[in-house]
């Protein structure tokens, strides 16, 4: 159960739609089960009443969808944003990727979203029903006589487990009370990787990245990846690749992508959430964030619209490139 109930969001959506403030609503649409919620666009009161859901499986971040949906859209679109989503929203605005005037943003509190694969690790296969009660879920399966009780806190998405902020940095209207920026442990795993020898680290990433299917879901969902034509999709770029031809190409895609989003990645966690191969992609991005914090001072992408990211800024206090290199040496 989330702090804010489905009913509150449904009422909000319907009233804004009926008042003519917005012409469409981004929301989560109910699926076949309780966990397979689909991000969707709603345009009628009836559809919202029947199919809008809000539960512990609404991880999807709508910010990036605004890029495509606001183009040629006549009127405003309502979007519900969890606190982490608002950072992506701001970052996209910083990059002038959508028209703010076409969006009505409603900030909503979030208690963390669940990862169905973690639920299944505990409850087993055959999950037929999930009921939320407070911060507990009752998971009914085909194979257990009694529902299995699971604490939401035990099955959170990685990014929610390490939530960086409950504060909304962008909204037109906020439902409920705003939260605080949190002290998260999100760099702990990065520190572990840094403590490895280069060979161990290479083996770690080799193992992870060789699982990659090159479906590009990580890129397609990433709010920092909004190039109209990605080089990896462009037959004229010379580097287009639909499958990795060798183990060099396997890593190339990820390294290039990590560099391209460095300083712009808000650590929204969508890439790791959607990867069908469970590759911990967030670790690549967090390494960059950690290094940027260390070398250029604390910086959170998306915190403010229009902020100049350290990597595209120059100040006389900037760290010398040779020191950055030494930073790497120390860790080696």
């Amino acid at each position: 159960m989330q702090k804010v109930s489905r009913e509150i969001l449904v009422d909000k959506a319907i009233s804004l739609l009926n008042q003519g403030v917005v012409k469409a609503v981004f929301g989560w649409r109910k699926g076949e089960f309780d966990y397979d919620v689909t991000p969707a666009v709603f345009t009628t009161e009836k559809d919202i009443k029947e199919n809008f859901v809000f539960n512990g499986f609404c991880g999807a971040n709508f910010s990036k969808y605004l890029v495509a949906k606001t183009v040629n859209f006549d009127g405003k679109i309502l979007v519900f944003l969890k606190s982490c989503d608002t950072y992506s929203f701001n970052q996209l605005l910083t990059e002038h990727r959508f028209d703010r005037e076409k969006v009505y943003a409603v900030g909503i509190p979030c208690d963390g979203m669940a990862d169905i694969s973690k639920v299944k690790e505990i409850a087993g296969d055959g999950v037929s029903k999930i009921d939320f009660e407070g911060d507990m879920m009752k998971v009914t399966t085909l194979y257990q006589d009694e529902p299995v009780e699971i604490k939401l806190g035990d099955v959170l998405l990685e990014r929610c487990y390490n939530c960086k902020s409950k504060k909304h940095v962008a909204y037109d209207e906020l439902i409920g009370e705003d939260g605080e920026v949190l002290d998260s442990n999100r760099f702990d795993e990065v520190a572990k990787l840094e403590a490895m020898t280069p060979d161990e680290r290479f083996a770690f990433w080799q193992g992870e990245l060789s699982k990659c299917l090159r479906c590009n879901a990580c890129r397609d969902v990433c709010p920092a990846c909004t190039c109209e034509k990605c080089v990896f999709d462009n037959p004229n770029s010379g580097v287009e690749n639909k499958a990795a031809a060798n183990s060099f190409e396997e890593k190339m895609f990820h390294i290039i992508r990590a560099f391209h989003v460095a300083g712009r990645c808000t650590d929204c966690g969508e890439c790791s959430r959607v990867c069908p191969q469970n590759i911990p992609l967030h670790l690549l991005n967090r390494k960059f964030i950690k290094d940027i914090n260390q070398f250029y001072g604390e910086y959170q992408a998306g915190e403010q619209v229009g902020s100049r990211a350290p990597l595209v800024n120059y100040t006389t206090e900037d760290v010398e490139p040779c020191d950055v290199f030494k930073g790497g040496e120390e860790n080696a």
Partner: peptide, 16 residues
């Protein structure tokens, strides 16, 4: 059109 409106075009479905 409606059902594909949030499809990422990632192709995961076709690969698995």
């Amino acid at each position: 059109k409606e059902m594909s409106s949030t499809c990422l075009g990632c192709g995961t479905c076709t690969f698995v």
